[in-house]
């Protein structure tokens, strides 16, 4: 269980102090898929950096199973907005980078990484370089790089925003299915209300900076699968959409 307890964060710059996050408390259950939606610059990326241990909170604390997070934690892996694949490494080399930082990858690590790539349709591209892959494939490779370190929790910072709309829908669908199969707790930051609703068990709406939680929605859709595509067609979808839309509008 991941817990944010009255977390606050201020940036310090020579021009002054910027209060990015006022106070945020959240409990995220194991296996939950949570989305964070909020206006631009409200502190969503900052919140992910706090959870990932890249920043230390100015107030409050972040814990996993009651253990405080004080730095980058092997149980948490972060997937950036742009894929950030290294052009000088093959796809397999890119996927192994997270492990390499911790130790010399073993044959077993390589075997596992290859298995993941094969399982998610990149088997032919193991020895290719990122520039030989399409945008959607690159994003999938970036997700597999995140999964390769076998984290419990995935932090996804607008992972689809660099893709065109068509690709975005399919890649979001693929990513959601992969995460479902791998049974990971996930926190997704997005600007896109539909994306947030269609992918998540719960949507959290943040206020403008300094951010606090404005509201929380447990998304219950009468859809037969977790596929975001299918969930977009659920009758209740529009209802959630309108409520969150209004919520973001009034600020």
């Amino acid at each position: 269980m991941l817990k944010l307890e009255r977390v606050g964060f201020n940036y310090h710059t020579p021009e002054g102090e910027i209060q990015a996050i006022q106070e945020v408390s959240l409990d995220i259950k194991d296996g939950e898929f949570l989305s964070i939606i909020g206006p631009s610059g409200c502190g969503k990326s900052t919140l992910l950096s706090l959870i990932g241990g890249m920043l230390r909170p100015s107030a409050g604390r972040v814990t996993i199973d009651d253990q405080e997070i004080t730095g980058p934690d092997p149980r948490i892996a972060w997937m950036p907005q742009r894929d950030q694949l290294f052009p000088w490494r093959t796809i397999l080399g890119n996927v192994l980078i997270g492990i390499e930082v911790k130790r010399q990858p073993t044959l077993e690590d390589r075997r596992k990484a290859i298995a993941l790539l094969e399982k998610y349709g990149l088997g032919e591209f193991i020895d290719r370089y990122p520039n030989q892959l399409s945008g959607g494939m690159r994003q999938r490779a970036a997700l597999i790089r995140t999964l390769a370190v076998e984290p419990q929790i995935l932090l996804l910072d607008e992972p689809f925003s660099a893709l065109d709309y068509q690709t975005r829908l399919t890649v979001a669908d693929e990513v959601r299915m992969i995460i479902q199969r791998e049974q990971k707790t996930s926190i997704l930051v997005t600007h896109d209300i539909s994306e947030g609703i269609s992918m998540s068990d719960r949507v959290v709406v943040l206020s403008k900076r300094p951010s606090v939680i404005k509201s929380c929605y447990d998304v219950e859709l009468s859809a037969v699968s977790v596929s975001p595509m299918a969930r977009r067609d659920a009758p209740e979808f529009g209802h959630y959409f309108n409520r969150i839309w209004k919520e973001l509008d009034v600020q």
Binding site: P72, A77, Q84, I97, G98, V101, K102, V149
Partner: peptide
């Protein structure tokens, strides 16, 4: 050097 790539590596604890 691309900050994003450095940030990614740092997130793995580099």
């Amino acid at each position: 050097t691309d900050e994003g790539k450095i940030h990614l590596l740092r997130s793995f604890g580099a």
